[in-house]
Amino acid sequence: MLKKISLALLVALIGVGAVVASRPSTFRVERSITIAAPVDLPFGIVNDFHQWKFWSPWAGKDPKMQTTFDGSYAGPGAIYTWSGNDQVGKGRMTIVDAKLYESIQIQLEFLEPWAATNTTLFTFKPTPDGSITVSWAMEGNNTFLGKAMSLVMDMDGMIGKDFEQGLATIKSLTEKEAKNRLEREALLKARAEAEAAQAAQGAQAAQGAQAAPTAPAQAGTTTP
């Protein structure tokens, strides 16, 4: 009897292993959003790791998360490492390529709670109405553990909502900054026009003073 149970368990394990092995060996998660702002704003907030704390969906999951910056200040060669609680784990990101206002490629290395290396790609594409479509994608290889986990929840289900949250925050921040930029430009333009008008009035007043006729001097009389 025990031999039959053991044999049944072995067959079941082989079956589960076959199912797990049949899962896709690669994965890709991607989300996009349209932003009504100049492309330099969303591009800049992604290309500079120092600004990730303002929009990263994982920054709020561990306020005490430790971060360090190495390499370039921004763009290719910039390195960002983090270490936090169970929700954020530990890892490192490196910007390996950046095409100005077009794309940013990042090597993403997870160190804890498990090791994995994935590729992250941000793209920035203009739309006919002058907005920008920002896409955030991550792809990588599925280990056997990853394939097993995908039977319950795949990578898209695990991090898709985080991507949506991060993109929504980028949209909010950059559209607000775009509005502030327009207001500043309008204020500076109005101030410059007011100063130019005042200068013109001053020049006209000076010209008028120079053109005004002067009364002839009266000859003095002497008393005998």
Rank of each mutant, 00 (worst) to 15 (best):
I5H: 10
I5V: 15
L7Q: 03
A8V: 04
L10W: 07
A12M: 09
I14F: 14
G15D: 07
A18Q: 14
V20G: 08
A21I: 13
A21F: 12
S22P: 05
R23K: 11
R23P: 04
P24K: 03
P24Y: 00
R31D: 00
S32P: 02
S32V: 03
I33C: 05
I35E: 05
A36E: 06
A36H: 05
A36P: 01
V39I: 15
V39H: 08
D40E: 11
F43T: 07
N47L: 14
D48R: 10
F49A: 06
H50C: 07
H50K: 06
W52A: 12
P57R: 09
P57F: 11
P57M: 11
W58F: 12
W58H: 06
A59L: 02
A59Q: 09
G60E: 11
G60T: 05
K61P: 01
K61I: 01
D62F: 07
D62C: 12
P63S: 09
P63T: 06
M65C: 08
M65H: 12
F69N: 11
F69Y: 13
F69G: 05
Y73E: 15
P76R: 12
G77S: 08
Y80M: 05
G84K: 01
G84L: 03
D86R: 05
V88C: 00
K90I: 06
K90V: 12
V96D: 04
K99W: 04
K99F: 04
L100A: 09
E102W: 04
E102C: 02
I104Y: 06
Q105G: 02
I106L: 08
A116Y: 04
T117L: 11
T120W: 04
F122M: 15
T123R: 14
P126L: 10
T127Y: 06
D129L: 13
D129A: 12
G130N: 13
V134A: 01
S135W: 09
W136S: 02
E139R: 08
N142H: 03
S150N: 11
L151F: 14
V152W: 15
V152T: 13
M155R: 09
M155C: 07
M155W: 02
D156H: 12
M158E: 01
G160Y: 05
K161G: 03
K161Q: 14
F163K: 01
E164F: 01
E164Q: 13
A168I: 01
T169S: 11
K171I: 02
K176T: 09
K179I: 10
L187Q: 10
L187N: 08
L188R: 13
R191D: 07
A192G: 10
E193Y: 08
E195W: 08
E195A: 13
E195K: 15
E195F: 12
Q198F: 02
Q198E: 15
Q201T: 04
A203V: 15
Q204C: 02
A205H: 09
A205E: 15
A209L: 13
A211F: 13
A211W: 06
A211T: 04
P216R: 10
A219F: 04
P224E: 14
